[in-house]
Design a protein around this nucleic acid. Structure first.
Lengths: 114, 114
DNA sequence: ACAACACTCACGGAGCGTGACAGTGT
DNA sequence: TACACTGTCACGCTCCGTGAGTGTTG
């Protein structure tokens, strides 16, 4: 239990999270107020960032380095999540299609032809 | 021919396009330089905006009104295009699945269950 | 008591919309 | 000639990162 490598285990205080993400600690507070990250809190109201939070912070850095402002970052990350979800559904369709329904004799199902 | 309602027919000069989109003409030149729109040009190098261009300009307005900067608008619109494309592929899968492969006796195929 | 957390405020750079200006084309 | 296009430049506003300052927590 309490494995620090668990991506959902919130272990990093703000100064460490800022260092890992390569930004000013104050910047992380700004991101939180804008709704881009939502770190856990201790009983004493201190932020604790998980490995997944750090990954998200790094993604935010990439996007801001590309010139996006925070409103754009928020919307882009939501859309990227949607794209991932749609790709997963598509892959699931294809898997089922192949496994359950395409005759073995049919070498190339329609979704492989174009 | 040359139907002005054709969404690909480039007919509006910049002042009219700006009025239709509700923005300053100079703003449209900025959008073009940033790669957000690409209006046609006449032989005399004047811009001509199509109905589709106007629609795109209105979408840009929506996004900037939501606080996005132009870099964000560009990326969001590309992602939205991708989402549309993925949804179309998904719908195509479902259509084929229903038509070709799901037995009539099977009332609810797997993709309708969750 | 000290270090690191919490929060708010102010400065500076960059992005973007708007207007002014000069030149060109119809 | 006159008007609307072309471009560039400058002003002002907002956004955002950074630092300072102060209070609180462990």
């Amino acid at each position: 239990m309490a494995n620090p490598r668990d991506p959902l285990q919130a272990v990093f205080v703000i100064s460490v999270a800022a260092e890992l993400a390569g930004v000013h600690p104050q910047t992380l507070r700004i991101y939180e107020r804008k709704g881009l990250v939502d770190p856990a809190r201790t009983g004493g109201n201190s932020r604790r960032y998980s490995e997944a939070d750090i990954e998200r912070l790094r993604r935010i850095q990439e996007l801001t380095n590309d010139g996006l402002n925070l409103a754009g970052v928020k919307r882009v990350m939501a859309l990227e999540d949607e794209v991932v979800h749609l790709r997963e559904r598509l892959a699931e369709f294809e898997r089922r299609y192949r496994r359950d329904l395409v005759p073995v004799s049919q070498a190339r199902p329609w979704f492989d032809r174009g």
